[in-house]
Simulated assay, not measured.
Amino acid sequence: MTRFTTSWHPTPVGDVLAAFADDALIAVSLEHGARDEAIARISGVLGEAPEHDDTAAAELGTQLDEYFAGSRRTFDLQLDWRLANGFTRQALEAIREIPYGETASYGEVAALAGSPRAARAVGAACRTTPFSLVVPVHRVVRADGSIGEYGGHPEVKHALLALEGVVSE
């Protein structure tokens, strides 16, 4: 039986809620609202209320701290992909290949994922990613080069791209 746990970690752009299925990261999200609402949302997705475990996100927390300090460019965590299927997973896997400090358009990611006409589906994958920050959907931009949204918080996307040197502060 799978053991689901959650843990919180603060970052410069908001608190991160991490959910684990046994030892693999199943979801990570930047939260800007009430913690109980975030827990209720992940409980609904998982189909049960996860246990809170402050130690569950220790490695994720270390890697997030390194990323925000500028010493980490990719995340090295075991991911449980059960919440990302089909083209969504293909798009997110393609997004993982966008190097730190670079961007790609939704159309370019669609082509990398094997469906060059699926730019809108890439946008949907970015909006619904279970792996915010860890899979760098913030590196996906509009065809005209504008950065677009990020979970309703374009200032967070701007801050992440500024951290990576893509845009100016």
Rank of each mutant, 00 (worst) to 15 (best):
M1C: 05
R3P: 00
F4E: 04
S7G: 08
P10Q: 10
P12F: 13
P12R: 05
G14H: 09
F20W: 10
A21W: 05
A21Y: 06
D23N: 09
A27P: 00
V28W: 02
L30E: 10
H32L: 11
H32K: 10
R35Q: 13
E37H: 13
A38F: 15
I39Q: 15
R41M: 09
R41Y: 14
L46H: 05
G47V: 08
A49K: 11
A49P: 02
A57L: 03
E59C: 02
L60F: 06
L60T: 01
G61S: 10
G61V: 01
G61W: 08
T62S: 11
Q63C: 10
Y67N: 03
Y67E: 06
Y67S: 03
F68G: 00
S71D: 12
S71C: 07
D76N: 14
D76E: 15
L77I: 01
Q78E: 15
D80Q: 13
D80P: 03
W81V: 09
W81R: 14
G86Y: 04
F87T: 00
T88G: 14
T88F: 03
A91P: 09
A91R: 10
A91Q: 10
L92F: 08
I98E: 13
G101P: 11
G101L: 12
E102N: 11
S105P: 00
G107E: 12
E108F: 04
L112E: 10
S115N: 07
A118H: 03
A118M: 04
A119R: 08
R120H: 15
R120V: 10
V122D: 04
G123V: 03
A124V: 14
A125G: 07
T128G: 07
T129P: 06
P130H: 01
S132L: 05
S132V: 12
V135E: 14
V135I: 15
P136C: 13
P136W: 13
V137Y: 08
H138W: 12
R139Y: 12
R139V: 08
A143Q: 10
D144I: 07
D144H: 01
S146P: 02
I147A: 08
I147K: 01
P154I: 05
E155C: 04
K157R: 09
A159P: 00
L163N: 08
L163R: 15
L163V: 00
G165D: 10
G165C: 07
V167G: 08
V167S: 04
